[in-house]
Nucleic acid binder design. Structure first.
Length: 548
RNA sequence: GCCCUCAUCGUCUAGAGGCCUAGGACACGGGCUUUUCACGCCUGUAACUGGGGUUCGAAUCCCCAUGAGGGCACCA
């Protein structure tokens, strides 16, 4: 079967090809989404391939994590790894024989050759070029090449000398002059292919028709096109998507977490007067030196960053898909938001179901300008998704959320969860926010100092506690109808409407924020409601007052 | 330094020569609703990077400048 025939018979086949060196990044998720959309939109196929040619950095855990994140996002693949089943032929590390076969083919025809520079020699050559203000290009005919045996053997591809031109489906005409090329390494000294070689071989062998990837790969395309030509293959169409950055135009990376944690830690050290982090280290039972090193930027340990941030009560910026999941974002909301960076469905549409996205998606409607990741808008969008979701799917989503992050909410039975969801559906942006704010339903809260001062101590708010207790304890049946009239009386107490209700709120919730009191006391129940009112009464009523 | 790409409100974007006194959304400001917080509703502020062309006419086409980003690994 010829290549052109193959292309005719397979309308569209895209792929997502992550390297398993960490968690799935939101940027990667976006690349996966666009490839998935394009394949599904055209009744094509979507391939998932694991590019584990870096023996040092690739891990099986990372690959497994990427699979599960893609599954959570609902981006299903037609060909690729089988979750939980170990490596198959969609892991590049299992395909060395295949790469070697084509490699020999190239060497035989003089299109690839051995090179023996040591890393030090290469570094020196680059430095010399930099000094001479000339770009460094490794070429087969250049003077001063190392002799056989001087260093480890790599295979380089002899790039053609002509200009390479291609039409990018998003950016249009791209051309790179012949003297810009250099002879890239295609097999490393450990016998593994480099990325450049493995992608070309696999994309061809797997019948990929469209390569949709981030713009950071744009300058790799001429190299790949050189390889396609040398191997006598018809290259796929290429489309390079605009990049996504932080709001401050820096690259979104795991280092952002370390950065945010460091800032919070410095603030903590000043506020708590714990400059050596001794108290913090003690409370965490961690090594004090590790914290000091971390703050001194000696490492970007994200696990430590997360631990420290949790300890001092700050949240780190979400970067990986997992982070968003743990913060309580819905997969569809995240996908919807991510799709809108660089792509516009037109007609002023923003919130789209997957079916609508598929309907409206096209490569032409992808823009050229890089975007910023605006978390505020994501939060708004997630809130919209939550408000629009039927109760049943929310229950499912929250249960899934509780699997990745432990909250007291996780212990809620079905009916309590549904009641809590009903209370919070209109007032939360993320499940994390609900889980945090609804803690007091499960655990008796400590009354927040500032809230206690403001609402109970000041203006003698405590004097409403006894009447509130009287009213509530006199309610015969703890149901909506009876409690509603009781609450009406409580709300009407005092000079300002709601003044006493706020005292009750602080007594029950431990802070100034909660769902409406009626629903709250209904769910809390008589016992816990009255207990907490009494507790506040004892805590806040001054000893010398003639309460009564 | 060299190569490549991009350029509309603070942010994501609509806009493919006259429909633009530039539209939508988030954020922000004001108001209404309200027992807190949200939600909801109403409303306001806010942009075509600059300079040259082309044209009767330019946010839209061309050139230059400027700015931003990406790439220049035995990482992908």
């Amino acid at each position: 079967m010829t290549d052109s025939l193959n292309a005719v018979m397979t309308p569209v086949r895209t792929r997502f090809a992550p390297s398993p060196t960490g968690f799935l990044h939101v940027g990667g998720a976006r690349t996966a989404l666009f490839n998935w959309l394009y394949a599904r939109k055209n009744n094509g196929q979507f391939v998932l391939r694991i590019e584990d040619t870096d023996q040092v950095r690739s891990t099986a855990e990372s690959a497994a994590g990427i699979l599960s994140d893609l599954q959570w996002l609902g981006l299903n693949w037609d060909f690729g790894p089988v979750p939980g089943a170990g490596k198959n032929e969609y892991f590049q590390s299992t395909r060395l024989d295949i790469y070697n076969q084509y490699l020999h083919h190239l060497i035989e025809r003089g299109l690839a050759y051995e090179a023996y520079e040591t890393p030090q020699q290469l570094a020196a050559m680059r430095m010399a070029a930099e000094k001479a203000k000339k770009p460094f290009r490794y070429r087969q005919n250049m003077p001063g090449r190392a002799a056989k045996g001087e260093g480890p053997c790599v295979i380089r591809f002899a790039m053609p000398w002509e200009e390479i031109q291609f039409t990018d489906e998003i950016l249009g005409d791209i051309r790179v002059a012949g003297d810009e090329h250099d002879d890239i390494v295609i097999r490393k000294s450990d016998g593994f292919p480099t990325y450049h070689f493995a992608v070309v071989v696999d994309d061809h062998l797997m019948g990929i028709t469209h390569v949709l990837r981030a713009q950071e790969h744009l300058m790799n395309t001429p190299k790949h096109l050189g390889l396609y030509a040398a191997l006598g293959w018809v290259p796929p169409r290429h489309a390079h998507m605009p990049l996504v950055f932080n709001m401050d135009n820096t690259k979104m990376s795991k280092r952002d977490k370390a950065k945010a944690a460091r800032q919070a830690l410095q603030l903590y050290a000043r506020q708590k007067n714990d400059p050596a982090y001794a108290a913090l280290a003690d409370s965490l039972k961690t090594d004090r030196q590790a914290i000091v090193d971390f703050v001194a930027k000696k490492n970007d340990d994200t696990a430590l960053a997360a631990l420290l941030a949790a300890a001092i009560g700050v949240s780190l910026p979400e970067i990986d898909v997992q982070d968003f999941r743990r913060s309580g974002y819905m997969a569809d909301a995240l996908l919807n938001f991510i799709a809108l960076i660089g792509w516009s469905p037109g007609e002023n549409r923003e919130i789209l179901t997957r079916a609508e996205m598929l309907n409206l998606f096209s490569l032409e409607s992808i823009g050229k300008t890089s975007g910023r990741f605006d978390r505020k808008k994501l939060q708004w969008m997630n809130g919209e998704y939550i408000r629009r979701s039927p109760a049943d799917s929310l229950v499912l989503a929250v249960r899934s959320f509780c699997q990745v992050k432990d909250y007291p909410l996780a212990n809620a039975d079905e009916s309590s969860l549904r009641r809590i969801l009903a209370m919070y559906q209109e007032r939360m942006a993320t499940f994390g926010e609900m889980a945090e704010n609804s803690r007091f339903f499960f655990i008796e809260p400590q009354i927040d100092g500032a809230a206690g001062e403001k609402f109970i101590v000041r203006n003698q708010g405590w004097r409403w506690l006894a009447p509130i207790h009287d009213i509530l304890s006199a309610v015969a049946a703890w149901d909506a109808a009876s409690l509603n009239s009781a609450m009406e009386r409580i709300i009407a107490m005092g000079e300002k409407r709601g003044e006493a209700a706020q005292v009750l709120r602080v007594a029950l919730a431990g802070g100034a924020v909660s769902p409406p009191m009626l629903e709250t006391i209904l769910l809390l129940g008589r016992q816990r409601t009255l207990d907490r009112v009494r507790r506040a009464l004892h805590q806040f009523t001054p000893a010398d007052s003639s309460a009564g």
